[in-house]
Computed example of a mutant assay.
Amino acid sequence: MKYYIGLDIGGTTIKYGLVDETGKILEKDAIKTSIKGEEILQNIEKIVKQFKTEQTITAIGVSAPGIVQQDGFMTTGGAIKDFFGINLKQEIEKRTGIITTVENDANAAAFAEQWQGNAVGFHNYYCMVIGTGIGGGLVINDQIYRGGHGMAGEFGMMSVMNVNNDQNLELNSLSFTGATVFGLLNYYNHHSGKPKLTDARVVYDLADKKDEVALASLDFFYTAIAKGIINLMVAVDPEIVLIGGGISVNPKFITGLRAKIADLKSRNSDVRDLTFAEVKPAKLHNDAGIIGAVYRAIQAN
């Protein structure tokens, strides 16, 4: 049996686990993500050192935010500014002595779903991860499609809503209108005139009580995501669309999103009669980054 270390580096926490070659997580834990790149690398070194005392490690798989090139070079690093412009693969290999593979976090989630999740048996699909912002992984003919510059799947950059056409056009993007924090919560907080909310579940609770601002917030949120998904459906024609991120476990979210997609589709004669892929939650949730990073490491080695 071969053993791997999976590292899922997020803006808030680093989730990590010891994974066998079948995809079973044998141990897992998490630590807070430092704002300093050097401290992150030191913590990774400690994690690897601990696991090396337990098993012989074949390879390390890393899921990281931002635009990641196939050779491990970080064109961007999401919220981790110290990762911009470094080769994360080389840095980790230098410190651990173990061959390492680095993958974009949304691509890792897509890999995980292909191996152990709801994309098993599908060859063309995309995985959209909804959180503070929005990321995505696009799979065509069983392979992650990376594009000419390694940034394919950055769905959050799509312009979907006319919020501000004078300046800061990123405010029209899917990440700024259809993400949980920048989209749903920001819309509610901007329009409610009440103390700011930090938990999207509260918006759903208020909507159940027919709070008008909460209902408008959800409608705006769903419209942004639905427009993005419809754009991708007509561009790529996937077999299935998987939604990851914490909000995807809420059945009200999936129900509301499906209803909005159906509504927009019914009002567009160009797509009204087309067959669209099913939209459903991803299966692996918080373990997707670890499992997907290891799957990528297994494929590469």
Results as ranks from 00 to 15, higher is better:
residue 92 I to P: 01
residue 188 Y to F: 07
residue 222 Y to A: 04
residue 232 L to P: 01
residue 37 G to V: 05
residue 220 F to N: 00
residue 222 Y to P: 04
residue 268 N to Y: 08
residue 158 M to L: 15
residue 9 I to F: 06
residue 124 N to D: 13
residue 21 E to P: 00
residue 279 V to C: 10
residue 223 T to R: 14
residue 61 G to W: 05
residue 96 T to L: 08
residue 296 R to P: 06
residue 223 T to K: 14
residue 274 L to D: 08
residue 161 M to D: 01
residue 5 I to C: 10
residue 194 K to S: 09
residue 204 Y to M: 07
residue 85 G to Y: 06
residue 14 I to Q: 13
residue 185 L to F: 03
residue 257 L to F: 06
residue 240 I to N: 10
residue 62 V to T: 10
residue 74 M to C: 11
residue 82 D to Y: 04
residue 10 G to W: 04
residue 131 G to A: 03
residue 1 M to E: 11
residue 134 I to Y: 05
residue 190 H to I: 03
residue 113 E to Y: 08
residue 24 K to P: 00
residue 3 Y to F: 14
residue 42 Q to F: 12
residue 212 E to F: 07
residue 53 T to K: 12
residue 233 M to Q: 15
residue 191 H to A: 02
residue 220 F to V: 00
residue 187 Y to R: 03
residue 249 V to H: 07
residue 281 P to L: 09
residue 82 D to K: 04
residue 111 F to A: 06
residue 37 G to F: 01
residue 224 A to L: 04
residue 86 I to N: 02
residue 33 T to S: 15
residue 112 A to F: 05
residue 275 T to G: 00
residue 276 F to Y: 15
residue 275 T to D: 12
residue 251 P to G: 14
residue 236 V to W: 08
residue 238 P to H: 00
residue 23 G to R: 02
residue 265 K to S: 12
residue 41 L to F: 07
residue 47 I to D: 02
residue 187 Y to D: 01
residue 93 E to H: 04
residue 152 A to C: 11
residue 144 I to W: 12
residue 94 K to E: 13
residue 111 F to C: 06
residue 10 G to V: 08
residue 54 E to V: 00
residue 170 E to A: 05
residue 109 A to W: 03
residue 271 V to N: 09
residue 62 V to Q: 12
residue 246 G to T: 01
residue 174 L to V: 03
residue 94 K to W: 02
residue 52 K to A: 12
residue 193 G to L: 07
residue 137 G to M: 05
residue 39 E to A: 00
residue 146 R to T: 15
residue 138 L to K: 03
residue 266 S to H: 11
residue 231 N to A: 15
residue 28 K to R: 11
residue 67 I to S: 05
residue 36 K to M: 07
residue 113 E to N: 12
residue 210 K to Y: 14
residue 186 N to K: 15
residue 255 T to V: 10
residue 290 I to Q: 01
residue 45 E to G: 14
residue 289 G to Y: 03
residue 12 T to D: 02
residue 109 A to Y: 05
residue 150 G to P: 09
residue 159 S to H: 15
residue 181 V to T: 14
residue 152 A to K: 09
residue 268 N to W: 06
residue 24 K to G: 01
residue 220 F to W: 03
residue 69 Q to F: 13
residue 96 T to R: 08
residue 47 I to P: 05
residue 227 K to S: 09
residue 245 G to S: 02
residue 188 Y to H: 03
residue 21 E to L: 00
residue 195 P to N: 10
residue 268 N to M: 07
residue 286 N to I: 04
residue 144 I to N: 12
residue 243 I to R: 06
residue 220 F to M: 00
residue 88 L to V: 08
residue 59 A to E: 07
residue 274 L to Q: 09
residue 300 A to S: 13
residue 84 F to R: 13
residue 250 N to I: 05
residue 6 G to W: 01
residue 230 I to V: 14
residue 20 D to R: 01
residue 48 V to S: 08
residue 68 V to D: 10
residue 1 M to D: 13
residue 126 Y to C: 03
residue 253 F to I: 04
residue 257 L to V: 04
residue 270 D to E: 10
residue 274 L to C: 10
residue 159 S to E: 14
residue 113 E to W: 09
residue 173 S to F: 05
residue 218 L to M: 02
